[in-house]
């Protein structure tokens, strides 16, 4: 007993040292590799863009919107809710001006898709006037919570109702992911633009990512 307990700490110590070494190796190695491949364009998910899988939602005109609608074109996805008075409309206005400026520069603009994280209040009917206000070409998607989670789960979107008695039941607040997601024409997640958003920055990175992916495809 005494000899066994005398040996145990030594073995544990050796094991701990081994684990620490392995951890150090991995933690040093990984960021360097990521930094190396991503250093060109921040937010670009290369070399492993994530292919999206099937989902089915409806837009503001009650037209189905599926994975197929993301194919053959570039898309920017933004998740929010219409009862958000501050950050969501700011982002929508920003996306409108991104599209506007790309078009005025004769560059191909992405389709912009707004996806509600508050289907309880954001019905297609409600979304119709909301989307049109910013840009009638934008698509505004809603669906049942289950159907929405099929898409939000793939992109790691977080959203939650805030328990705030003061703001009231009808005026409840939602916390939510504020990133803009760039989807390529093969329905893969190519890049993530983290907030706070800036028009010039998003335009520039979108064009760079696009150029980069198109170069990969042709080579």
């Amino acid at each position: 007993m005494s000899s066994a307990s005398g040996k145990t700490p030594l073995i544990l110590l050796a094991l701990a040292a081994l684990l620490a070494g392995a951890f150090l190796f991995l933690s040093l190695d990984k960021p360097q590799r990521i930094a190396h491949t991503q250093q060109k364009i921040p937010g670009l998910l290369w070399p492993a863009p994530k292919p999206l899988t099937v989902f089915e939602l409806r837009d503001q005109n009650n037209t189905p919107f599926t994975l197929e609608d993301l194919k053959g074109r570039w898309s920017m996805l933004f998740f929010g809710y219409t009862h958000c008075p501050d950050v969501c409309p700011t982002t929508m206005t920003l996306l409108d001006s991104v599209v506007d400026e790309l078009k005025s520069e004769k560059k191909s603009a992405p389709q912009v898709v707004f996806i509600t994280i508050d289907p309880e209040r954001d019905t297609p009917k409600h979304l119709a006037d909301y989307i049109t206000y910013f840009n009638p070409d934008f698509r505004g998607l809603s669906g049942t919570p289950e159907k929405l989670s099929i898409l939000t789960g793939q992109l790691g979107i977080l959203s939650m109702k805030v328990d705030d008695q003061k703001t009231g039941k009808e005026g409840y607040i939602m916390d939510h992911t504020a990133s803009i997601f760039l989807i390529g024409p093969e329905a893969r997640l190519i890049g993530v633009f983290s907030p706070p958003h800036n028009k010039e920055d998003i335009m520039q990175r979108y064009l760079e990512m696009r150029k980069f992916i198109e170069k990969q495809a042709s080579s």
Binding site: V87, L158, D164, D175
Partner: peptide, 11 residues
Amino acid sequence: MLENGIVKMRH
């Protein structure tokens, strides 16, 4: 406010 890419609103 922004926290880890999540936008929050507080009273």
